[in-house]
Simulated scan of single mutants.
Amino acid sequence: MPAQQHRPAMPIVFDTSGLRPHENGRTWVDSASGDAVSLQVNDGPPFDASWMSGLAALRKGFARMFADAGCLIEADLVPFGGARAVYQLVKVPMPNAAHGQVFLAIFTLTKSPAYAQLIYQAPERGTTGVRESMLFMRLGTPADWTRPHPYDPELRTKLPFHRGDEPGWDAQFPDHPLSRARRWATHAARSAVVEPSFAALPELGGH
């Protein structure tokens, strides 16, 4: 069956409260924070099918995928709206800027022959690096601030894997873009609904 027959207009329905539509109905923007959510549907596999052989393989694959662009913070397989999704939390440098980062929370529905992604983008605005600076001082300039990547200890990433990105700090920095990205991801995983015909498609690698 042609791939386009597997591509419903909205394969994922999610909570858009507080968001305004932007750009062809596939992007929504939070006017208060500037954060954006986009829905994408593409042909072909989203990544190597061998990554689906186990969680360790999946995490290592994504850690390497994002190493040159920034750094993978978290990856997991999660229930998502009647299907299963690969969840990724990533940080990348702010485009065309000397400082700052953008945090991305991504849910990928690993279907065949088309896959869908719901992507939340939370950029740093104003003074950047506040969370990291405050924690670095609060922890007393820790020697273990930067750590080997937990999914691939030998991996070198463009942005460091460090203690400041741990979820335990989010409550102390609720307005930080990383905290916003995690908070949105938690809500999306609980409230999103995958269109039934799309959810019924076979998964990448046959899992």
Rank of each mutant, 00 (worst) to 15 (best):
G164W: 03
D144L: 05
W169I: 07
R131G: 06
R163Y: 05
Q117R: 15
P174V: 10
T146H: 09
L159D: 04
R147V: 06
R125C: 09
T157R: 08
L155K: 09
L109N: 03
S133N: 13
A171V: 14
D165F: 07
F103T: 04
D175C: 04
A116V: 06
R138F: 06
L139R: 11
F136M: 15
S112H: 03
A116F: 03
R156T: 12
A114Y: 00
P142K: 04
T110Q: 09
F161P: 08
A114F: 05
K158N: 09
P123I: 00
A116S: 15
M134N: 13
R138G: 11
F107E: 01
L139I: 06
Y151F: 15
P150L: 06
L159Q: 11
Q172E: 15
A105E: 00
V102E: 14
M134T: 15
A122Q: 03
G164A: 00
E166C: 01
K111Y: 03
S112I: 06
T157E: 08
E154L: 10
F107V: 00
Y151V: 08
V102H: 06
R131E: 08
S112G: 00
D170A: 08
K111W: 01
L118D: 02
D144I: 10
W169L: 10
A122H: 09
W145A: 08
G126Q: 09
I106Y: 08
T127W: 00
I106T: 05
L109C: 04
F107G: 05
Q172H: 15
P153Q: 12
R131Y: 00
Y120S: 05
P113Q: 01
F161N: 11
